[in-house]
Design a binder for these strands. Structure first.
Lengths: 219, 219, 219, 219
DNA sequence: TATGAATGAGATTTCATTCAT
DNA sequence: GATGAATGAAATCTCATTCAT
């Protein structure tokens, strides 16, 4: 989704107002829920807490969401979709393969740094067994892995990326490393600039940790 | 704890039988709990389910565990400690840095493949906000990261590992990648041999994904 | 608290409606709880029974009371405080010492006769070791004993009460005797008019059981 | 029960050994139970606690007592009966009415001071609604009240006690006052000598609190 | 729409009692 | 007789969800 199509969606939402989803209150509740989920975890959060955080009555939640689980589902539909479309846009800004990957990683760190609550919820939920969000997670995960896979494949064609690697592993390897960096940052109390991890991460992706001595001087 | 002292502890446990901790039933319940936690997640599991799986009455659980949370805490004390001491032993089998890392990764994949329930619980809980196990997780995580850090540092001294890397990042990068591989395997339904991922993973750690052309042939 | 300030409090309660404390349902539940406590005793009463008696769902109890113990605590805060302020008012109605004591005793018997459930709970709880209400009981007990002590002291100054008595004992002696009379009435099935005991009780307090004819005056 | 018949019972118990009631362990458990009941109250005490205090296994309790309630019932049969027969003996030591009452009161305070646990349990249980011990309590209470009534009636015949009093009230009035004095002592932490209350109590019983100087003789 | 009091199903936990050893 | 592990009924309490206002 590019800038223009994004605006179009906003307009459409304003016009059709499907089920109040573009309603200001819908967003307030969703944001409040994410704040609470991030603080206590999904199962330890109560609908009452969310309502209080959102400044609405408990019952009001049910005018916008089917049930508690649905809040989580909507979170993946609304919030993270937005983020992932931003990732795609970022990748398309350049034609250079390594730069594409670097843009993706930086944007990923940037967005998760900007919305720490989302980061917390994302980290927690993707490792849980909630059947209601499992499909969404798979879908989103696949979206991300596909972006990475596309980049890698293009790089292989260009010659900047090794051909003797297992693509299915590599794409997960990259996502896993980024996830870990975010997780470490979250649990450290978010004291440092997360995006500063982009260059060291890229360096590890591209060159590994091995010392290739001699031949390295040719690079 | 080395091999010998470990055996000693086993013997001692068999002799003193401290409050049933080495009791057969204690292990049955713990194993049952992990099975249930792995299937449904901690918060969606009930004590009744665990009791049923263990083949005991609900009340019996409370003869061995203070409360539901305590089962999780005991799991980390009993089960994973065992695993991590196995990791350490595996690392000490060789002096070669790269082989040490490879042994660690292989053992990690091997153990988690062998006990899939443990793997599920471990994956889920390490990404949750359960204040009761948070400290244990940090402790175990640190243990693992320290093992990796020791290997890396030794490799840097020997010259097999690059010196221009950020150690704090690298150790987490490696743990994150292994975690992701395990997670993918778990959610794929454990259809393939997890340990077969050792070599491709090591290759990515050491050489990265970048194509260093010319010079590479020298390696 | 005098008559006027008491009315003021009633009005204020009606206006501010602090968290349902003056709520109709709060009173219904409290009254139901006292009925059940009076019938079975505190520890043999269940929250379900109270809910049933009050005509509400079990969970509703917890909207008005923190837990089962809290119901008892609230009972002492709300119900008996009211009674004891009535005692004080009654004492102030006259300046004659003996009449003051008589008014107190009569009002005491009157109030406990009127609310037999309260009487049962009061009798039971004041002789129990419930740490949650122990402080309240001490406080209320002290209030009562202080009223009696004030009357006795005033009587001693006036000359209507003997000076060679141990005040700390006398005040408890009086409370103890009244309590016993109430207790007897309760366990007899409340078949007679409790307030009719006022005169005989007062007579015993003032004159004792001894026959003072002849020689007694020499003492 | 007089001295002789009491000894007879002891002998009989030693011979027939009905259901182990004269067993050493029976007494140990009963004593332990009273200690625990005195500390926590009956309903807040567990059979396990009693077993631990007695130094026996939980199951052993049920070899000597039908159930938890039965321990309380036995307590009244075994322990307090013993005490009340001592009361009777004490009363019979003199022929002087006032001295009889004084002996009773002193013995009462003495025994309850000597066995504080018994005192606590007695105070608590006599004010509770336990249907299992209700009958026992009534029976014991009646025994005590009858002793007092006998003394009073004899005193009335002799002329030392007023005739214009209500006997049903007076006997309870005396028991209530003694009870209150014991209760106050218990909850004060048993810091002073309880028997020292005998004289002041007797003084209040006989002479009352009224000042009979001058005009009072006209009443 | 919005509210929030009320609901009641369901979860955790306790503990008197039993029974195989 | 003595044990104490095991039982499971029953109690307390929570909280997602509903619905009359």
């Amino acid at each position: 989704m590019n800038e223009r199509s994004f605006i179009l969606v906003e307009i459409l939402e304003a016009v059709i107002s499907v089920k109040g989803k573009n309603n200001k209150k819908y967003k307030i509740i969703l944001e409040a829920a994410i704040t609470i989920f991030a603080k206590n975890g999904f199962y330890q959060s109560t609908v009452s807490e969310i309502a209080k955080e959102a400044g609405v009555a408990d019952g009001t939640i049910y005018l916008y969401f089917k049930n508690k689980d649905d809040i989580l589902v909507q979170f993946f539909n609304y919030k993270t979709r937005q983020v992932f479309s931003a990732f795609k846009a970022e990748v398309e800004k350049t034609d250079d393969t390594v730069a594409k990957l670097e843009n993706l990683v930086r944007k990923h760190l940037e967005e998760f740094q900007r919305d720490r609550n989302m980061a917390f919820v994302y980290q927690a939920v993707t490792h849980q067994k909630n059947p209601l969000v499992a499909d969404k997670i798979n879908e989103i995960s696949k979206m991300y892995l596909d972006i990475v896979a596309d980049i890698i494949e293009k790089g292989q064609q260009e010659g900047s990326i090794r051909k003797d690697i297992y693509l299915g592993l590599v794409k997960r390897f990259i996502l896993g490393a980024v996830d870990t960096v975010i997780n470490t940052w979250l649990y450290s109390g978010a004291k440092y600039d997360l995006t500063s991890m982009t260059d060291p991460l890229m360096d590890l992706f591209i060159r590994g940790i091995g010392n290739s001595e001699g031949g390295k001087s040719l690079e």
